[in-house]
């Protein structure tokens, strides 16, 4: 089973991945795969609807649906393919407020970057977890206390802290 975690630790996955809307049963929180003709299934409230996106998606295509989605899962085909970092940022920039999940063999050393780019949680394959168990993810999160980049650290970036008093009106 894949492992799901967020900043608080390993968490249970309340979402179920289905291949198409026909598989949705009552009371299920589902993650549908992206398709060109995707439309949010009628009657499904946004907090029960998730969407899995490839990392080369044209964001303009998914933008109209963002308000109807409770979760977006972004595919990371390999840890070295960093498109998902920018895609996460762009989705947040477009106003997506739901849960953002990175899905794929990303490594513990990328955890902090993912959170900084707007992700809430990470779903990794089980095989990876045997090599990189939870303590490594916690350590990775604490490794660097503060990055420089404004806008990626919830107001606590080095550049912001240096000037926080200067910024007050």
């Amino acid at each position: 089973m894949p492992v799901l975690r967020d900043a608080s630790g390993v968490i249970a996955d309340s979402w179920i991945r289905v291949d198409h809307a026909g598989e949705i049963a009552d009371g299920m929180k589902v993650i549908l795969p992206w398709s060109e003709d995707f439309a949010p299934p009628a009657g499904l409230p946004s907090f029960m609807l998730g969407l899995h996106l490839p990392n080369d998606i044209e964001t303009a295509k998914v933008a109209p649906h963002l308000a109807r989605l409770g979760l977006i899962s972004v595919d990371f085909p390999s840890f070295a393919d960093g498109r998902g970092f920018s895609l996460g940022r762009r989705l947040r920039n477009l106003g997506f407020r739901g849960r953002l999940r990175a899905c794929g063999p990303v490594i513990a050393d990328q955890f902090a970057y993912l959170l900084a780019c707007g992700y809430d949680e990470v779903e990794t394959p089980e095989s990876l977890d045997r090599r990189q168990p939870q303590p490594q993810w916690e350590r990775a999160l604490r490794a660097i206390s503060r990055g420089y980049q404004p806008g990626y650290a919830g107001g606590r970036s080095v550049m912001q802290l240096r000037h926080q008093y200067g910024m007050e009106p």
Binding site: D109, R131, Q132, A143, G147, V158
Partner: peptide, 29 residues
């Protein structure tokens, strides 16, 4: 801030080398 970040990066790399040697990280990673 600068000094702390560089120090932390060294400690992080030390940890990464150890995790490479104990197999937590593959050579590819």
């Amino acid at each position: 801030f600068d000094a702390q970040l560089v120090r932390e990066r060294v400690a992080q790399f030390r940890d990464q080398v150890a995790r490479r040697l104990d197999g937590s990280l593959t050579e590819e990673e």
